[in-house]
Design a protein around this nucleic acid. Structure first.
Lengths: 198, 198
DNA sequence: GAGGATAGAGAACATTAGGAGAACATTCAA
DNA sequence: TTGAATGTTCTCCTAATGTTCTCTATCCTC
């Protein structure tokens, strides 16, 4: 069971690794998390290693290795091909199976049931399930789950605005974007998937 | 069994854990449930531990661990609750995990990649994956994969028309429904799911 | 009403987690 | 070979947090 600081650290290492292709240094982690002591960070990283979340090669620079999560079990469905109105189904070479687990499961993800039509123009309907990856920051244009005033949650498209303000825009022509001071909004995660059953 | 207050507490802990990746503090639970005494909450949490619903590490901060019904953990994703613009995330009773497998997989199912915008008003966008169950008949109003003249395939909404005719209707205001003699159309399957990744 | 079970308030206290920062050791690339 | 970059090991600090009390207030059943 990870502590909050450990979880933040792990999330940062994962993101860094995904972005750069190699592990961060202690100094980079401290910087990324707004801490100033790499000694303290060393403690965190050690704790992560003991918890089995990462593997460390002592002394080595950038010596952090991520430990693969439980291998995603085979959860595949045959992918027949591409369908476009008015054409035959076109087979997709070298990809006869779709691994759903790989698409939707992963560390730090959770699902939410969407209620309401505010994202309908983005193809997210009332009753759909969305898959969210937990993270506290977002890029401009991401669809995020945001907590406003630590109270009401909402799924909206995220934009930065001048003057330390944020815009949360629904994808529905009949609704208007909302603009908030940055400090009132806490991002809880970004949309990584969506699914629906009939 | 659990008392109502214990159930509320457990639900909150589950939701918090899925969202944050670590357990809440007593103070956070009390706050989340609208209570003001962490001493009382301590009692609740102790009771939950005795009931076997959670595991506690005494003295430790955020020392609550959820007890997994391990099962097919690799195939499930925590379902936090229902999100509606402007409300807190509302927990869904008795459904804290979503099993992706049973959600989308099943006998006789296959996937297709959608190309084009002909079903956009049904929330099916260009690039989405749809899950189809193989069957040769369909009910009025189903969305089906149909083969026309044994040649071109298409994903459309299916309607019966008088005179042994069938209508295949796109869900896109700028496109018109097509009507065929029944013998020209062969239904290959009906839409049972849809998914999208970002 | 008595008595138990359940909820909660709130105060006092003890411990932990997270962090600062200095000093030192090691790695690695030029 | 060498020095900057980076990891390691300390010691110290403190706010955040768990623990333990004692009191109240409802319910419910008998």
């Amino acid at each position: 069971m990870l502590t909050p600081a450990q979880q933040r650290t792990l999330d940062f290492i994962r993101q860094y690794y995904a972005r750069e292709g190699f592990a961060p240094t202690l100094a980079e982690i401290t910087l990324g998390l707004g801490i100033s002591s790499k000694g303290s960070m060393h403690k965190q990283v050690q704790a992560l290693a003991e918890a089995g979340a990462i593997h460390l090669t002592p002394g080595r620079k950038r010596g952090i290795e991520l430990i693969d999560e439980v291998e995603s079990q085979a959860l595949t469905i045959p992918l027949l091909g591409r369908i476009a109105a008015g054409h035959p189904i076109e087979a997709i070479p070298d990809q006869e199976n779709l691994n759903i687990a790989e698409f939707l499961l992963g560390p730090g993800r959770f699902a939410l049931l969407v209620q309401g039509d505010s994202m309908i123009d983005a193809g997210i309907l009332d009753g759909d399930t969305v898959i969210i990856r937990r993270q506290e920051t977002a890029d401009d244009g991401d669809i995020v789950v945001a907590l406003i005033d630590d109270e009401s949650a909402t799924l909206k498209r995220f934009h930065r605005r001048v003057g330390n303000k944020l815009e949360l825009a629904p994808e529905n022509k009949s609704l208007r974007p909302l603009v908030f001071e940055a400090h009132r909004v806490r991002i809880q995660g970004v949309l990584v998937g969506q699914l629906r059953t009939y």
